[in-house]
């Protein structure tokens, strides 16, 4: 059997997002064609998207040139699918009941549905023989890091948001959760750049309001530089870059534009 693997995943991805959307849209009143309620347009849009996603999957079966084995779940696959499913259910329930204002009975259906589709997509994905890019063929390490990052991130967020003070303010707990998740994700080489670059923007968000503009910049730059092996060999360049960027950002954003930020730790 020949299918274009990436298109199957892309199609599933679109269908998954549309299903989530349609599900969430159940809270909104559709109204009538004359007086459209808040749910009318989203309803049309998500239906269309689900249809298009299905079409993408359908067309992918006709594509030539990319030979792919039929997916046959093996032991390891089942372990993967079950773990992803469990994680999706747990995280979804946790988030939606804590923050979402979505009714609890819907949450269970929703997460199971989302989890099942996500698991299917990932199962297809990891069996793909295509090797361009990291996502097409996951190694064992990449998969473990992916799940570990999700779990670590959610746990970090969940436990730290009650810690009080800085940790309970604004989006700091979310930021820490994301930071932890991305740092764990950065461990296997395949995810390194994604994890590090995202983590260093999280550092910026976490530092800025507490530690001030300059320390946030320094943190971001140093972490960003970890992504490049050259920098680790030649730390002097990093130092120069940091100094240069500090001066430049001070000049542009503080002196000329006067954006409103804390400059120093408070």
């Amino acid at each position: 059997m020949r299918i274009n693997h990436r298109d199957v995943v892309a199609g599933l991805f679109l269908v998954l997002l549309a299903t989530i959307g349609l599900f969430l849209n159940m809270d909104h009143n559709l109204g009538t064609a004359r007086r459209m309620g808040p749910g009318y347009m989203p309803w049309m849009v998500f239906l269309l998207q689900a249809g298009l996603g299905a079409l993408v999957i359908f067309v992918s079966f006709g594509k030539r040139g990319e030979r792919v084995e039929v997916v046959k779940p093996e032991g390891i696959d089942i372990v993967r699918i079950v773990s992803v499913l469990m994680f999706a259910t747990a995280a979804g329930t946790l988030y939606l009941t804590q923050y979402g204002g979505v009714r609890a009975d819907k949450v269970v259906t929703f997460t199971i549905m989302a989890g099942a589709i996500a698991a299917g997509a990932i199962a297809l994905w990891i069996r793909s023989p295509e090797t361009d890019g990291t996502m097409a063929a996951w190694t064992q390490g990449e998969f473990v890091a992916f799940v570990a990052a999700m779990v670590a991130g959610v746990l970090a967020w969940y436990f730290i948001r009650g810690a009080g003070g800085y940790f309970s303010q604004g989006y700091n707990a979310v930021g820490i959760g994301m930071l932890v998740g991305f740092l764990v994700l950065a461990i296997p080489p395949g995810w390194r750049y994604l994890g590090l670059i995202c983590a260093c923007m999280c550092i910026f968000g976490l530092f800025l309001e507490k530690l001030g503009f300059y320390l946030a910049l320094i943190g971001t730059i140093l972490l960003a530089c970890l992504a490049e092996r050259d920098h680790i060999r030649k730390p002097l360049g990093v130092l120069g870059l940091t100094a240069f960027l500090l001066v430049l950002c001070w000049f542009v954003f503080i002196r000329e534009l006067d954006i409103r930020v804390n400059l120093w730790p408070t």
Binding site: D258, N262, W264
Partner: peptide, 26 residues
Amino acid sequence: MTIARRALLATPLAGPAFAQGWPSGS
């Protein structure tokens, strides 16, 4: 760029706005 600078408000700000120093920015 002097005019621009003046216009873009070179009011220095350290810490949250206090009533005494209000308005501390645009």
